[in-house]
Every structure is written in structure tokens, then in C-alpha cells.
Design a protein around this nucleic acid. Structure first.
Lengths: 215, 215, 215, 215
DNA sequence: GCCTAACCGAGACGGTACGTCACGTCTTTTA
DNA sequence: TAAAAGACGTGACGTACCGTCTCGGTTAGGC
């Protein structure tokens, strides 16, 4: 799960001068710097990245097979780790997941970065698959596991698929962070504090067993 | 709402030979044909589009300022019209909206096309704004109006913002059609018949006034 | 020999609106004006000429089949008429011819024009042929006739071809006006007053019969 | 005096892969081949030259700033070297110079080529200056030096400028090689053997001191 | 005093070439 | 052998003209 040499050295492991790890880092950080500086993704050519990182083009191609592969490593580096769950209640854990999505959707510097690479990643099936496998799916599995446990505890209705339930919680926040947030709204008015709680409470209301509903 | 000349003639309205509408159509349909034939979006150069449509490059640039602008019109042309609402009940109307999203998410020819252009549109703030203004926002307004009326009728709780409610319904389906559908799943197993009803019923359960809940 | 309609009207002589002579003039004068203003010949596109003359492109193509044909008429219009010969002596007549060449080679406005179109004319065999037939050859014939008469009078040696003699006089001046004058020298120091007399006198010295030489 | 990199590398002398001389040659020879095959100069686009030489356009622009600069090197490559002078007499040396001009004016393959590029070069002041500096002026200086020595020896009159004298010899041959030869005459009848001697003898007659004239 | 054919300006049209840029590969020197 | 530098063939970019073709609107005869 480390910063992969996506392009492994073809022959033996150690002959001649070894690849410099410093170079690896300076390339990825160079890309991040450019994105943070507001350079549109479309203007991120390999040549420009090499120039920025003070590196030869061949040095990039030796490690990644192209721009897409490189971006996977950039996203992986920038992606925030999964949130620590409070564990105090189902509701609190769900809120924690949504809250992390909301944070990422805010107009911070590092998120502006993420969002633009994200768009690029999304427009390439190959990248999207990789991103899904490495980042999205593991997190989704955690969320679904949480809900399954709650169903077994009787905290949630058992007659609805846990995967669908998960989408009921995640989908609305996604709606705002990915679909609307990046462009239409400029201020963060669309992602106010308390939004996570509002969503979780409203959806949870319909998913609890009848017996345990708010009176 | 007609096929716009995104690049309006700078001068008066009618001097010189008028632009041919047939050419306009053949360009847009040329793009659709290429996409349907499985040409990757990255290989859709203006030169190739012009060649396919049997048209000079200048003729394209006369109408659109670049590939992106052109894609807006392609999406707009392919975008299905808003669904006709049955009007029999709030639930049925909501299902109708979601059902349309589900249909679009299925792996039909025309939708495979749409989804890749859609990704491209999404990766450009300018395009995304335009798409939002022209396509998304009007539809969203209809949906919200529907919910507001239901709140006034007492069919829905009045203590939750109607816009948020709308996201609670739309978000989960979006999750599956846009986020997961294009790559992870190949068969349409993720968008089964009955999905719309499942979502609407589950979410509606938490949004009805306490008095009118399922016992 | 008038300003030709190089592109004659195909059918009968007079049906419909006749072509405007004013338009004809304004096109040719437009070209001259552009050249006098120092616009490089290479930048003289048909589109620009039409714009300058306030004329549609088709109006130009109706008269000339292309840029080259048009330039013939421009040169013809600008070419100075043959000089009037004093007739006082062979020497004076020869000087008159050379003096005209010298004048044209000076850096006057109208000659800057001529020289640049001349260069263009020269680079196209078709144009060069036309220019030769219309302008150069008739003048050359006059010069040769002059020399032939002088041979009959005994003023010139009879053992040298009159056409070659003509080149002996014309060539040196051409050397300076066409080959060197346009670029290398900037001031007109290379074409000083008295140059024509110098050339004629020097060459004439070798062409007179021995009996009549300067002692 | 080697095949210049008209577009010098901006940086230091030896960094990165050096420019291939083979490519340089194949471009210039490609142009020559096209011209020899009778392709009109106007159809010699950079794209076509690149295609013929099996070379990318950028590789051409890396060396020359445009078609014109390239043509200088083509002309320079094809230009015959200065003739070897017999040194037996002033007359023989002058004949040698003229004879070379006459040879070049004949309808040989390589000269048909040269003459059309030559016309192009002539139509651009910048090119013409360059051509003059590199090719014409050095040769002219040799010729003038020859005449100056003859003046000092008393073989030529001292009262006529040596530069003017030079034009008296060169001009007439130029008249036939450059002005008339390319188009009007087709066969080489205008440049017969013996022409050089005829011109030199006729002009020399007027330039010798009176004492040494043909009786 | 109409009729109508040809003119006129404007500018769209399918092409071709321009000169620039980035692609991914390759060949140098230097370390 | 890696690394920087940059040349290489390829091909798309967006612009400018080419010569042809519609447009709406004149402008002169011939009836």
C-alpha cells in the first residue's frame, strides 16, 4: 500500500544506480503544488510536470506508464484517512462518516486539489476502477459492516438491504459535495455545519424498526 | 431552448450566407455516432469529428469555441425530457422521477454515450455550470416544488428543508447511476426493477408526519 | 491594352447589371495603396485586398482568376511609359533609356511598389511570361531597332549582334537596379546621377568602329 | 561556412541529444528532389517537405524559422563553387567567371531547381540580404580585385571605377541568365558557346587604355 | 414603369497549410 | 545504470486563406 513503483524494474532487483525516492516524492508534490496554485487540470502536461519537478520526462515514464497512473498515486497520497469512529452510537458513527465527506467538500486548499483530480479520475474508466478498488470500496465495506451489525442488534430494520441503506446515507451528501458543490455554489453555504446530523437523523427515522421510532 | 449557436454571429442577424442547420445536426450526430462506436473520449479530436461529419474545422469553431462547448450541445440533445408525472400520489410522482434516472443509468447504447460525455462535462467548471443551468436546475426546481406542495398539504414533515428532502430522494439513485454504475458493475444488477420504489418508500417513511406513518 | 476583364462574361454581351468600372479601379488602387504602405507582398491575401477595397471576394474572382492575374494589371497600371527619346544622337537616346531604368530604381514610393510586385511576378513563370510579352519585349524591340539603325549608319560596329549590344548597355544598369539596389544599399548612392552617361560612354567606346574612336 | 544551424540551440553547446546531421541533409535533399521532380515552388509547403523527408514539422522549425530560411541553405548547398581561374591573362580570367554564370544558366537539372528557389529568395529582402552576404558579395569582391590589379598593371583604364567595370562584364550575362533565360527562351540558344568570349572581348575593347587598343 | 438577369456586399462552406505544443521514445553527457 | 536534457516522428491544436457557394439587396437594360 506504499507509494507504488507502478512500473517495476524489468530485470533483477539491484543492479546499477538505484532509483531515487526523493525524485518520486518531488514529482508527486510538484503535481499537488501545481493544482493548489489553481492550474487547470487540462494544462497539466507531463512536460510541465517534469519542468516543475526539475526532472527529465524519461524519469517519470520510468515509474508510471502515463498521466493517469501518476494521478492515482497523487490521489492516494492526498486522500484523507478513514475517520476514527466514536463508537458511542450508530448515529454518531454515521455522522462521523458523513462529516468527513463534508469536510472534504469544503473549499479548503487541499480539497480543491482533490476535487479536480477526482474529476479527471472519474472521466477515465481505468482510473475510476483503480480509485474504486483502492479507496472507495474498502471504506464502503466498513460502512456496510457497521449497518449490518446494527441490523443484527435490532437497531435497524432487517427488511432493507444494508447496501441500499448505505446509499441512503451517503448519497445525499454526495449530491452536495460532488454534484453541486464544486461549481454552483461558491461559498460553503450549501454544506453548513449540522448538515451531517440532519441527514442522518432524517434517514434514520425511516430505517429504525417501528418499535423504536421517535414518538 | 433550441440548438443554440453558442458562438453568435458578431454582426447583425442576417448578412451573408446563413449558417446551415443541417451542418449543425451532422456535427452533433457525428459525435454521437463516434461515441456509440466505442471511440474513447480522449480520441475525439476536433479534427476527427470534422472528418466524420464531412465538415471543415472552421465550421465547428464558427459555432462552438472548443470541444467542451460542443459537448454541452451533444449532452443537451441526448438528454431525455423530464418524465410525465402520473399525479396519482406524491409517492408515484417521486418514483417517476427516480425511475427516469434509473432508465438513464442502464447500459443502453445512448446512455453509454451520455455517461462518457457527461464525465467530460463534469471535469470542467465552466461546462458544468452551463449544464447545471440548462438541464439540472430546472428539473430540480420541479422536484422541489412537488415536495413543497406536499409539505403544505401535510403529507410531509414541515421541519425539514424541502431542498434537503429532495437530495435524500435523488442522492441514493445518483450514487448508483453516476458513481458506481459506469465501471464497477457491468451487468445492470445494481439498478434492478423496483429500486426506485424501494428508495422512495424507505426515505418517505422518515419524512412523513408522525401521525401518518406506517403503523 | 485597356484594363482587361481577364475573366470575360461568359454569355451574351449585355444582359443584367453591367460590371462596375469603379469597383475595378478601387481594387487595383487598393493593392497599390497596401504596397505603398509597406505591406509585404506575402501578406497580400485576396481576403485582405477585398476588405481594403470594401468589396466581396467573388467580385474579385469575377474579374481575375487569381492573385497572379490581378497583379499583372497592377503592374501594367503602374509601369511608367517608355521614355521620349531626344533624338539628338545615339548616345543621348541610349542615355535616355538607361536614365528611365535608373529613375525607376530609385527609392521613390511608386518604385517601391513596382519592385515588390516585380519580385512576385518574377517568381511565377506564367506572370513573368505575361509581363515580358506586355512590357519588356516591346521596349527591348525599340532599343534594338535604335541600335540596328546605328549599325546601318556606321555609328556602331557591324560585327556584333545588335541584341547582344543591347544587353551590354542594359545589363549593367539592371545589375544595379534589380540585383543590388533593392536591398543591399539603402541610400541611392549606388545609382548616382551621371551613372547612365558613364555606362553608355564606357560601353560605346568598345562598340564604335575603330575609325570613329576617341583618340 | 558549414551547413548552419540557422536556429542555434539557445542553451549551452552540448546538453541532451544532439541534432542529427543526417536529418539536416535529408531535409535539404528532399527539397531539391521535389524541385527536380517539377513540383511548383508554390506547392512546396513545410508539411510536404517534412513528409517527403520523413521528418516531423517541428524538426524543421527547430533548425529554420520558416520556409525562407530553409531555402537559403538549399541555395547555398546547390550553388557551384567559384571557378578556378586560369591566370593566363585578364581576358581568360574574366571569361572564366562569365563562363560559370553561363553554365549555371543552362537548363541543367540542378539549375532549373536553383532558378525557382532563387526567385523566391529574391522576393524577400531579408533572404536576399543573407544570400548576398554569403554568396554574391564574396564572389564580387574577387572579381573587383582582379580588375583593380589590372588597373595597376596598366591593362585597364584607370579613370573608370572598378566596381562599375565589373558590372559592365557581369551585367550582360546576368541579363540573359536571370532575366530572359528562365521563361522566354526554352532551348539554350540564348546562351550559346562563345557568348562569354564575345561579351568580354566587346567590353574589354572600351576599357583598355587607348595605347593598347586593337588597331 | 415593370421585369429580370447579372451584379454587389457579406459571409458560410470544405479544404489545406500554418506554426505551436504535447505525446511517448530515443540518444547524448554526466554522475 | 540512473538522471537531466533535449532531439525525434506523430498528430491535434486554433487560425488564416483558398476558391466556391448561397443569401438579401441593388441596378441597369429590354419590354
Amino acid at each position: 500500500m506504499s507509494l507504488a513503483d507502478s512500473q517495476p524494474r524489468p530485470d533483477g532487483p539491484t543492479r546499477g544506480r538505484p532509483r531515487s525516492e526523493a525524485v518520486e516524492r518531488s514529482i508527486i508534490e510538484g503535481v499537488m503544488k501545481l493544482l493548489e496554485d489553481g492550474v487547470p487540470l487540462a494544462e497539466l502536461s507531463i512536460e510541465r510536470i517534469a519542468r516543475t519537478a526539475g526532472v527529465g520526462k524519461a524519469t517519470i515514464y520510468r515509474r508510471w506508464s502515463g498521466k493517469e497512473e501518476l494521478f492515482i498515486d497523487v490521489v492516494r497520497t492526498a486522500e484523507p484517512p478513514d475517520p476514527e469512529l466514536p463508537g458511542t452510537s450508530l448515529r454518531d458513527d454515521l455522522v462521523a462518516f458523513l462529516e468527513q465527506m463534508r469536510q472534504r467538500g469544503l473549499m479548503t486548499r487541499s480539497s480543491a486539489l482533490l476535487r479536480s483530480v477526482f474529476a479527471q479520475v472519474k472521466s477515465s474508466p481505468k482510473l475510476w476502477d483503480a480509485y474504486h478498488t483502492i479507496v472507495v470500496e474498502p471504506r464502503r465495506r466498513k460502512q456496510v459492516a457497521l449497518l449490518l451489525r446494527a441490523q443484527e442488534n435490532g437497531e435497524l430494520r432487517a427488511d432493507i438491504d444494508a447496501e441500499l441503506m448505505n446509499d441512503l446515507f451517503i448519497g445525499p451528501m454526495l449530491m452536495r459535495t460532488v454534484m453541486r458543490a464544486d461549481t454552483v455554489m461558491r461559498a460553503d453555504g450549501d454544506l453548513p455545519e449540522g448538515l451531517s446530523e440532519q441527514i442522518v437523523d432524517a434517514v434514520l427515522e425511516g430505517l429504525r424498526p417501528v418499535s423504536s421510532r421517535t414518538p
